[in-house]
Nucleic acid binder design. Structure first.
Lengths: 221, 221, 221, 221
DNA sequence: CATGAATGAGATTTCATTCAT
DNA sequence: TATGAATGAAATCTCATTCAT
């Protein structure tokens, strides 16, 4: 059996085990058995538990980012609120919507992969937390650009300050992460529902903010 | 040294260790040493690693809920957007604002306690996840009632459907959780800033939603 | 509370715990709690686990030997097979019968004490095995003398060789020990039944042996 | 080194350690060292202290039963008291005699194995006591059938009641167990002597009982 | 390429035992 | 006299990791 195939089997087994048991509680024995190979082979291909975990993180992070990007740039042809620009790239709001849907669909389809990224990697200290933080940053800045673009094209001229847009992106991504884990566990919320909820808030909030609807404490401090 | 004092020392050490290392990676040896006692004493007072972790969860959850409630009902005397009612309970928007500030302040002051609740307890399976889920539910329903109240008093009659309010509360809490961990790690965002960002979104989103600003995909599927 | 009373409470608790759990599995904590005193007091009175166990063995051994001797010399007034001699000491066969009954009654009444002697002390190596072996030796020689006496008076002149009598005593005691544990566990055999069974064998065997009924291999190895 | 060999080494070491120290006092460290392997290997092959102890009991019980059966059906060619039947199966009395000799020889050769069965397993509560009780039952019923057969063929027609035969078998086995431990400890009694003593009692008692020699207390109670 | 055999190090937990009061 | 507070030492068991083949 070619090396690439064996390696994928091992990563599949590792993602599943790490996702369900956690990094520390997962044992190399269990991973090897689930992969259907002997333990020394796992070490031959992936060197150590740490490197194996890192490989899982990288693979799952890449897959998630790819899914979101692919979803956002989907060739579905529909144009967003701003109307068609005549080109092949969808409008920003449509991209946001499709990206969110892709995100929830992907995390629902690969719950263990999502658990590895969101629950496990971030709680295991430095070698791992950094890798997933980088991926998160990539998504946040992607979302930031989409929101800025949507704001510009949908609500007329007076675009929002960068700081406000960045905050919205952070909150949106945070809420999405939170909803993803919740939806996977509960099983009651579909990917589409989750995406619709978030999109509504982003949209309503965006509109409100552009109209200057802000809350300030009636007395400072 | 009296038992109560020793017990608090142990819980302090345990929260710190669990928060930084994770449940599995934390060793009873390390906790005992950090507490300045011998390992058998930890077992004498707290029975097992599981019970010790549970005790940490309960203590930190109670402290967090107390901090938020206390913050929300603070006697700072200021009235919110609805105007002063002249009585002693603050307006709902003001409660929300103060509660958020209390939340971010508390989690910033006790990063390990927050890590125990948010990062560790939720990934260690059933005995623990349930305890923190209960606390979260308590906070979510509190926020839900505040939002409903704020919507009623701030924006005129046509109140939002319960479902929409519940969704906003979920998203708000989720975003707050996400921001809290982020702020603690990065250290660049103050509690007040984080609270302002979220409050603005909630407020702007609330207004937008009441005006019926929703996003619907221009073509289904 | 006077020291003697406290000490007896401790020994009661220790015998019960050692008898049910075994020497190693019994913990000083459990013994102290069962005795209703604090652990340091147990150490103050009885110094160590070893000494406590030794004290249990001594007390139970003395009680058992006393019970058997008292039973054998009972003032019940009946005379055995050899007829009354007109004095106050019962005939040997009657003593044997009463002693066996006393033995089974005593071990049934104090199962934990018997377990300490028979099951626990003998399996815990040298300091303890010797103490119970001494007691056993005392009983065996007592039984030996009774059998010799009974043989003399009941079956006419030609007394058995000492060696044969000693063997019978050993076998009788061994069978009695075996039956005692068995009766206590099963609960189906009364002390009187057990005594009757053994007495019958001893008696029938004694008679058979005096008539020269022995088994020899038809061809020596 | 192949697994089967290692496993036997471990069982040898375990039987020796359990037999000498007792179940609780024996440590896995000591067993592993005596077997010349590391502790994890013992766990890899035998899973736990409980299972290791069970394996010891099963092995030693099987060996003991096999030794007794083999001894009893030995092809030594000699016939017992009932005269030669001309066939290959020895007479019952001869089987009893040979079985007893085999029993004492075996227990003398494997004192630790016998200690595991007789002293240790029976005092360690249910998982273990049951296993050795089953073995004992097997031997008792074997002995019962031999005694019944011997009584029939050696002493004419009027066979003893089943109850009496069962009692004799119980007493014989109990006495044998008792003598075995005693002989092993003291070292003064040879297997042949022990077997002769018991066989004589069984034989003489059998004859006496068939002649109706029983002991009854001269006055009830 | 692949594995059966093996282990050093460290985890949780228990227990006999001792002070200071 | 009596105890609450505390611990050193050792138990069972697990796991990441490596050879020899």
């Amino acid at each position: 059996m070619p090396r690439a195939v064996r390696e994928r089997q091992m990563l599949d087994a590792a993602v599943r085990t790490f996702g369900q048991r956690g990094y520390r509680a997962a044992s190399m024995d269990e991973i090897a058995e689930l992969a259907g190979v002997s333990k020394p082979l796992v070490y031959l291909y992936l060197n150590s538990k740490e490197e194996l975990f890192s490989a899982c993180i990288r693979r799952e992070a890449a897959a998630l980012v790819a899914a979101v990007r692919e979803g956002a740039s989907g060739a579905s042809g529909e144009r967003g609120a701003s109307g068609g620009v005549g080109a092949s790239v969808p409008a920003a709001d449509r991209q946001l919507w499709d990206g969110l849907r892709a995100f929830f669909t992907h995390t629902a389809e690969r719950p263990d992969g999502w658990a590895v990224l969101h629950s496990q990697a971030r709680t295991q200290g430095e070698p791992f937390a950094a890798e997933v933080a980088a991926m998160r940053e990539e998504i946040v800045s992607f979302v930031t650009s989409l929101i800025a673009e949507a704001a510009r094209s949908a609500h007329g001229d007076p675009s929002l300050p960068d700081r406000e847009v960045a905050g919205l992106a952070q909150a949106l991504v945070g809420a999405a992460e939170s909803l993803a884990g919740w939806a996977n566990v509960e099983g009651t919320v579909s990917a589409k529902e989750a995406a619709a909820t978030l999109m509504n808030f982003a949209w309503a909030g965006l509109g409100g903010l552009m109209e200057g609807r802000r809350w300030v404490p009636s007395s400072p401090l």
